[in-house]
Structures are given as C-alpha cells and as structure tokens.
Design a protein around this nucleic acid. Structure first.
Lengths: 239, 239
DNA sequence: CGAAGTATTGAGCTGCTTCAAACGTGGTGG
DNA sequence: CCACCACGTTTGAAGCAGCTCAATACTTCG
C-alpha cells in the first residue's frame, strides 16, 4: 500500500466539474483541497480495497479505470460497476466500517484519497458539500436500480446495447468521442456485469457487427449507429 | 394526498431501535421528534410517490408493507425492493430532486414524513444523526449490490431461497416468527423482483414443497428447514 | 353469487449456457 | 528478433432452464 503524497488541488483539477468539488465556491474548494491531500497509485490488476478491509476513505478516480465486484460465500463473482475518472468509489464501506466489495484497477490508475471522517466534518460546515455527498450516494442508488432493471427484465442484446450506450455517454461527458473507444474490461467482466456468459457477450457483439450497428476489433469499439442501439434497448416504443 | 397530523414521537416509537433514531441520545431524539411531525396513511395499492414526483421528504415505514419499482421507457417494470416497518423509502429522489421510482403500498400503511432539508439541517448539528443517514444510504447500496449478485449469477431456486431467507430474517428482527409468515406480495411481484416469471416462482415454490423444505398455502409460507434453504442458496460450499 | 384477480400446472419452445475447438495477441525470455 | 506461452476472443453444436401459451382452480370481495 504505497501512498504517494503529491501536491494536488481540487481547484486545479480538470475533473472538478464532474467530481466531488462540483458546484463548490472558491472558499469551499480551498477546504476541500486540504481534505484531499493524498493520492494513491494502483497498478493494473491490483485492488484499491477488498471486501473485509476496514473502511476509512472514499476515493475519487483521478485516472484509470476500475471495476467493483461482490463475491458470494460460495465464490461466485458479480461485477457491480465500472468506474472512470471523476467517479467515487467506496460508499459500500460506510454502513459496517468494512468494505463489502473489491475495487480492482483495470488499468494503471490513480485515486484521490478522501478520509471519510473529514468528509463528514466538512459536510457539517458546508451545506453545499453535504448535499453533494448525499446526491452522490443517491445517484449510486438510482444507478443500481437501473442495473436491476437491466438484469431483471432485459434480454442479452438489450443489455449489451444499454451497456454500450451508458459507457459512451459517460466517456462523452469526459470529452471523449461519442462513437469510438477502447474497452478496458474483458468479455468475461462485461458478462459478469450484465449477467451473461462471456460467449454470449462475444456472440452479441458479433450480431451487432453483422447488423452494421458497430465495428469491433478486440477491445476497440466503433458505434456506427447510435439510434439503432437505442432502438435495441427500447424495443417497440410506440407513440 | 391527505396528510394526517398525529402527535407522534420517535422517542416513544417501538421501532426506534430499527429506524432512523437508532443510537441517538435523548437530547437528539427530542430534536428528531420535532422533525418527524407528520404521518401519512397510504391505502393498499396507492402510491406514496411516483417516478417524476418532486422530492421533498424521506419516509420511514411505520406500519404496512411497500414495494418500490422502476419502469423503463418502453414500459417494463422491475421491482427494486420490498420495505417493511422501520425501513426508509425515498433516497432515490435526492440526486435529481425528483423521484425515479414508484413506492406502492402492498397493504394499508402508515409512514413518518421526514422533510429532507430538515434531515440535512439536523445532520449538521448531530454527528450521530449525520453518520446514521450515511449508513442508511450505504446500506441501501450494499443491499442493491447483493440483489445484483442474485440477478446476475443465481438460478431460480437459489433466488427464491435467498429471497425467503432475507424476508424471514428481517421479520425476525421485528419480533415475528422465524419460520412462518404471510407474503404481502403476489407471485408476479416476487418474480419481478427476482427476475423471473410468475409461473417460475410458483413452480419453484411447488418444488420446495415437494422437497419438504417449506409448506405453502397461497400467501402463507412455513419454512420447515431453514438449513436446506441455506444449502440451496450456497450450493457446494466445501470446506 | 358472480366476477376479477391470483395461483397452479402442463406442454412445447427458445434464448442462453455449456462444452469444445481454433484463433488472435501481447508479453517474455532464449 | 522471433518462438512460445498464457490469456482473451470467436465460433460451432448440443442441451437445458426458464419462458410462453393455455387451461383450470382457488380466493376475495362487491
């Protein structure tokens, strides 16, 4: 666990409009800079934390890409999310002072460490920050509900289409192309997230390619027809 | 929307050890009593709130039983949870100031209304309450992750067994029998929650009955062999 | 008592999984 | 530098868990 102390400021971070400092005024931003005093590098394949680890901090992804996953007592894994720059990891740990999932870097990554007791202390001072923390947790709950909808009532093609649209939308919010990107995760990890087997993920990709909706070369994906993907997610919406 | 003003106190509530006031000292409890000044009755089948409604308050279930559900643009429903006495509903609304799901009473119910801006104000005063609110949101996130595990990687029998065990465990925490209860929801609602069709739910119940694990008569369920249910959820855990 | 909603059960079908084989691809060490 | 190996991906073929469709029965309530 090597924590690199790097002089860092939220106020100068290019993610400040996506991340925790969103909407804070300069004064509040100053205080936040003090809170987020350390960063931590995680190498590809390493865990930022694991289920059972004691909970101390939230983490803001500064660069790189993570997956979170839960494991059942008999060893089955479920990927519960993929996190990219500006997103917050670790909220699962608050309730029991222990993490209940693993957070694994899918590529070399860097996170901002935010000790949770300091987050709480600062939240008591600044209404804006307090409300923002609440919004971040609520957003996670709403996101989880939409994953439940996906897992509970969509078919394989709909799941993959929804996944691609969600990914591209988040990448676009970060200034990347709305039509092409490189996946950071394997077919198996996508499958785990979407509740399907890796072979089904692969076949569904191939189906989309055959239909001219996307181009795929290994991890590279080019979305040729976003509207077609939308139609796949929302079949026969008439009216 | 008829709001009944009832003189009510958290301090005298028999759910205080399960609900929001959990772990507060008498002084803090007094303040909370002031916050939770109104209750609201909801008749069976009616919605406490619906997706799109503006968000103002959290609700603590005082009596009765709710389901929450999300609906996709093309009209598919997914039940995201069942809530019983002492549980908090409405956290989904914080992020966008609008609710993103429906909360529907499965039987005549009563909730304590907690205006969220007052919850936030009081949280700034009392560290205990602040942390407790965070824990409640975190608990919801952890719960959602375990539902994702269920939906993403369990088979029908495992899902239903996990569902029954979870239900009975929560009922037990409220002083009810650990082995028998009446379901408040239909097979279809169970199926929606568990990502299976109502016929499959019914067949799986019948299977459990044939195996001597439970007795079922319509909504009534008697768990005859809890360990067997545990073994179904966690197959071949060797060691 | 009748009607609407809920539950059970059967039979056939299908979408996804399983099992298997072959094919990249990227990293490593001879 | 290239051969090799581990890992990830694609594709095929067969099987099956859960779905669909359908008929019947039970329960509740006006």
């Amino acid at each position: 666990m090597d924590v690199h102390r790097i002089k860092v400021a939220c106020s100068g971070c290019n993610l400040r409009e996506l991340c925790l400092p969103m909407g804070l005024n300069p004064d509040e931003m100053d205080k936040l800079d003090h809170l987020v005093s350390t960063r931590k590098r995680i190498k590809r394949g390493d865990a930022l934390f694991s289920a059972g680890d004691s909970f101390t901090s939230l983490y803001a992804v500064r660069s790189g890409f993570f997956k979170t996953r839960v494991t059942s007592p008999d060893g089955r894994d479920q990927v519960t999310g993929f996190q990219m720059a500006g997103e917050i990891i670790g909220l699962d740990g608050i309730v029991n002072d222990r993490h209940s999932c693993d957070a694994v870097a899918l590529e070399d990554a860097e996170v901002c460490v935010m000790p949770f007791d300091e987050v709480e202390a600062l939240s008591r001072e600044f209404t804006t920050l307090q409300h923002h923390v609440h919004r971040i947790m609520s957003r996670e709950i709403v996101r989880d509900h939409s994953v439940m909808l996906l897992l509970g009532s969509m078919r394989a093609e709909e799941r993959l289409a929804a996944f691609l649209l969600n990914l591209v939308q988040r990448l676009q919010a970060r200034g990347f192309s709305p039509s092409e990107f490189n996946l950071r995760m394997t077919r198996e990890e996508i499958g785990s997230y979407l509740g399907m087997k890796l072979e089904t993920v692969s076949r569904t990709f191939s189906k989309f390619v055959d239909d001219g909706v996307i181009e795929v070369k290994q991890r590279y994906v080019h979305i040729k027809d976003t509207e077609a993907l939308r139609r796949i997610v929302n079949p026969q919406t008439c009216g």
